[in-house]
Write a protein that binds this DNA or RNA. Structure first.
Length: 312
RNA sequence: CGCGGGGUAGAGCAGUUGGCAGCUCGCCAGGCCCAUAACCUGGAGGUCGUCGGUUCAAGUCCGACCCCCGCAA
């Protein structure tokens, strides 16, 4: 008989994992818990989370709690799990990029605990922006961790880890997709192995833990006093979310792609300098960064050359 | 109707009070040069987002619509 699973997830990072569980006959996804539909995009169109769309396509029960901490949410979920159809309890939760803190009493409901797929090699990069952090910190490799959840964030015992190398020009978006797929490939066998009692959870070395915060657009404002190498990594890491930008002539300009250059400039650090058909900025460590692609406010993305030509 | 910028040559942009549609780059041809992404000469390439209105005359003024983008989420 298939293990009964409740899946918690919201973003695109979680959809491959959900799909992997849905098509695996060892599991039955009895319900999906996701965030409420939210106004999204330029016109604030009310949009369902991608996870909800997939769940509905498979006729899986969907819960969207406005506030998951409330008694109401707890009672509703517990009631569902206790119904005859689910004969008492589910075997486990799988939580992938749900986006909210799940209260302990809800985590306590499944028989065998809660499994989380996290997009970094824990204990490194605990928190919400693990993919960006790996690139921004200059890590050579990263990966996914499948772990048991406990009371602290990304703190539980590890069931499995898979590593991948970070490409020298890889962006946050590209890495996000690769890790998302890697997580989905890893999850089913590890989950089954754990529920079959064949995998022994290993504690993390908490002394090595690092943390990353939830990012906002404001975090993408470039600080040109940092080193050129740091900024180059940040531009890659934060592409496409939250994006990196700088103020210029009273307008916001997104910086999409940069290159560690050996060109020099007479301008002060942080000032855009046009040299021939190149755009160069001196950074805090005295090294220069060439801006290859950018996007002025209200315009489409363009190359530095196009930007310069249009300004003459 | 959340706020705001914009659609003009292949690309990026300018276009004053309506009066022959321009700039830089690119492209094509030729020239210069040891050579060139440099320089010189010539050339092609536009139904000015769409539809309608005002006018002798609309890129420009008015109305509607389509599309792209920044903020916000």
């Amino acid at each position: 008989m298939a293990y009964k699973i409740v899946f918690f997830g919201t973003s695109d990072f979680s959809t491959p994992s959900l799909e992997a569980l849905l098509k695996d006959t060892r599991f039955e996804v009895v319900a999906v818990v996701t965030k409420p539909d939210a106004p999204i995009g330029r016109h604030q169109t009310l949009t369902p989370p991608p996870v909800k769309v997939i769940a509905q396509e498979h006729d899986v029960q969907v819960f969207q709690f406005e506030k998951i901490k409330t008694d109401e949410s707890y009672d509703q979920l517990r009631g569902f799990l206790a119904s005859a159809r689910n004969d008492g309890k589910v075997d486990a939760y799988v939580v992938v990029s749900y986006g909210k803190i799940i209260p302990q009493r809800i985590l306590d409901l499944p028989k065998h605990g809660c499994i989380n797929v996290h997009g970094s090699l824990l204990p490194l990069h605990r928190g919400a922006s693990c993919v960006q952090a790996a690139i921004a910190e200059g890590d050579q490799k990263t990966g996914v961790t499948v772990m048991l959840m406990d009371a602290e964030m990304d703190h539980g015992d590890i069931l499995a880890q898979k590593e991948i190398a970070i490409g020298p020009e890889e962006t946050g978006g590209q890495l996000h997709n690769r890790l998302s797929q890697l997580g989905a490939e890893t999850l089913p066998d590890i989950l089954a192995g754990y529920l079959d009692g064949k995998i022994t959870p290993q504690p993390q070395d908490h002394s090595l833990a690092t943390y990353c915060k939830l990012l906002s657009r404001e975090d993408g404002k470039l600080d040109w006093t940092k080193s050129a190498a740091e900024i180059e990594r940040l531009v890659r890491a934060y592409n496409p979310w939250p994006g990196t930008w700088t103020e210029w002539a009273g307008k916001r300009i997104k910086i999409l792609k940069t290159f560690l250059s050996d060109l020099t400039s007479t301008k002060k650090a942080g000032e855009l300098n046009v040299q021939n058909d190149k755009l160069v900025v001196i950074c805090g460590d005295g090294n220069s960064l060439e801006i290859l692609e950018l996007q002025p406010e209200g315009k489409r993305a363009m190359t530095a050359k196009e930007f310069i030509v249009g300004r003459r």
